[in-house]
C-alpha cells in the first residue's frame, strides 16, 4: 500500500503561546539547564537579555501545539499507533524571553515512502511579537508498515 502524499504543502492555522516565568523555570529544572539566566531576572538582564531567557529546547513547548492538528489531519492519514518521532531539527534565531508572545505556523513539507515506511516531514516557523523569527523546526515522523 502506498502512502498518501496529497497533503504535502498543506498548512494549518497558527498557534500563539505567551512565555511565563515559572514555566521557563519548570522547564529549565526538568532538563537540567544550569545557567542562572534561565531562572533569575537580574542574571538574565546582566547577560543582556530583556528578561529571564528560555533554554533553546524550550522551543518544543511553544511550537509543538501547532503540530497537533497536522498530525491528526485525516488528509495526512498518519497511523498514530505505529508512528515514531524519527528526527528533529531546530534552527534558532532571536532568543525567547519571559513575556514574549510566540506565533507558530505549521506546514507539511513532504511525504514519501522508503523501505516500507512512510516519512512525514513537517516544518514549523515561530516568530515573536516583533515579527522576528525565533526558531524553525523540521519534524520527521516515521510510520511503520504503510
Amino acid at each position: 500500500m502506498a502512502v498518501k502524499t496529497e497533503a504535502a504543502g498543506k498548512e494549518w492555522p497558527e498557534t500563539t503561546y505567551e512565555v511565563g516565568l515559572e514555566k521557563v523555570r519548570e522547564y529549565a529544572n526538568a532538563v537540567g539547564a544550569e545557567n542562572t539566566v534561565h531562572r533569575d531576572r537580574e542574571a538574565a538582564e546582566a547577560a543582556g537579555f530583556r528578561d529571564v531567557v528560555a533554554p533553546p529546547m524550550f522551543c518544543v513547548v511553544y511550537s509543538a501545539p501547532a503540530m497537533g492538528p497536522a498530525i491528526l489531519d485525516p488528509e495526512v492519514g498518519i497511523n498514530l499507533a505505529t508512528m515514531l518521532h524519527g528526527g528533529q531539527e531546530f534552527v534558532w534565531g532571536e532568543p525567547v524571553c519571559v513575556g514574549d508572545v510566540i506565533t507558530t505556523k505549521p506546514r507539511c513539507v513532504e511525504i514519501y515512502e522508503q523501505d516500507g515506511k512512510g516519512f512525514y516531514v513537517f516544518e514549523t516557523v515561530s516568530s515573536n511579537q516583533d515579527g522576528a523569527e525565533v526558531v524553525r523546526g523540521t519534524w520527521t515522523n516515521i510510520v511503520r508498515g504503510v
Binding site: 545557567n35 539566566v37 533553546p56 518521532h85 524519527g86 528526527g87 528533529q88 531539527e89 531546530f90 532568543p95
Partner: peptide
C-alpha cells in the same frame, strides 16, 4: 551555556 550560542541542532532518534 550561553543560550544564544546554539544556532542549529539536528538529531535522529
Amino acid at each position: 551555556g550561553d543560550p544564544r550560542a546554539l544556532k542549529r541542532l539536528s538529531v535522529q532518534f
